[in-house]
């Protein structure tokens, strides 16, 4: 009977889509800003991510097959349309453009509704979570991710990835994944959990700067800023505000050169939580 009561009483709440704020009442909304102007493409973030999240090192062959597990990847783009004919295909005077890419933690994620077993779901923290235990490996989520940021365990990578004594460096806070499971960037959810429980022990609220993701911590130029978008004092919120990116609206004054913020594929209405600040170039 409780089922029926639950069902009838909460009908209107359950029928809320993201247009009306959705069913979740968010406690936090973790977001990120990546300043491409500061990014030097050094790949330190990627290495830090491998160390923090027990990412398997797959080796050259599998990497060439596109079976790598880099949750945080630095994409290099050599062509630059606004340089016109001056741009050469392989090298150019300004060097490559870099794009650090990790899961965009979309609020209207395309990967979530297609998962047949509800292994991809949305946490009250605004995170796009992946439950490894529940995943059956249908890989639909990866197919439906416009950013192609989901990585699949094509082999039991753990068997060869960390030959002893390298296995001693594995992070005990999170699991090592076996074959057949989809995984992706979690915004270092283990750090978020630790910070939350620490704050609870100290009987205080989480402050900005309590949580640093591995990539943020390692970035030598501090190109990555992470924090709670619902905390109006946080750096990440201020940066979002400054560059007029906002959850729930793709609108922005694109003509103002001071506003460098954009989110990837905003036109798809996936509501990503990562804002990129465009690289400034003298042409």
């Amino acid at each position: 009977m409780s089922i029926v009561r639950n069902f009838i009483q909460d009908w209107s709440r359950y029928r809320k889509g993201i247009e009306d704020g959705g069913f979740h009442e968010y406690e936090h909304m973790w977001g990120m800003v990546i300043d491409l102007d500061k990014c030097t493409g050094c790949n330190a973030c990627s290495v830090a991510c491998y160390a923090e999240n027990n990412l398997a090192v797959v080796g050259e062959d599998y990497f060439a097959h596109g079976q790598a597990m880099h949750w945080m990847r630095i994409e290099r783009y050599w062509d630059e349309p606004n340089l016109g004919d001056k741009a050469s295909k392989d090298t150019q005077e300004h060097g490559a453009s870099f794009m650090p890419m990790m899961c965009q933690q979309c609020n209207a994620a395309t990967c979530e509704p297609v998962c047949p077993v509800a292994a991809a779901y949305h946490t009250p923290d605004g995170l796009n979570a992946q439950i490894y235990n529940r995943c059956i490996g249908s890989r639909y989520c990866a197919n439906n991710c416009p950013y192609r940021l989901r990585y699949f365990n094509f082999y039991s990578y753990y068997e060869t990835s960390w030959p002893s004594p390298l296995d001693m460096q594995l992070n005990p806070d999170i699991t090592v994944r076996d074959k057949g499971v989809m995984e992706k960037c979690t915004f270092c959810v283990q750090r978020i959990r630790t910070a939350k429980s620490d704050a609870k022990m100290d009987d205080r609220k989480i402050q900005d700067g309590d949580i640093k993701t591995a990539c943020q911590q390692t970035c030598p130029t501090s190109a990555i800023v992470f924090g709670d978008l619902m905390d109006h004092e946080s750096d990440v919120h201020l940066l979002w505000h400054k560059h007029q990116t906002k959850l729930g609206t793709p609108k922005q004054d694109k003509k103002n050169p001071e506003l460098r913020g954009y989110r990837l594929y905003e036109q798809l209405n996936t509501e990503p939580s990562v804002t990129y600040l465009e690289r400034v170039r003298e042409v």
Partner: peptide, 21 residues
């Protein structure tokens, strides 16, 4: 279907309501 969805709130939302008619 509606009852199963209403009692399984940790569902993938993707910006969609809990009970998707």
């Amino acid at each position: 279907l509606a009852a199963a969805q209403a009692n399984f709130l940790v569902q993938p939302q993707g910006g969609k309501p809990v009970i998707t008619i």
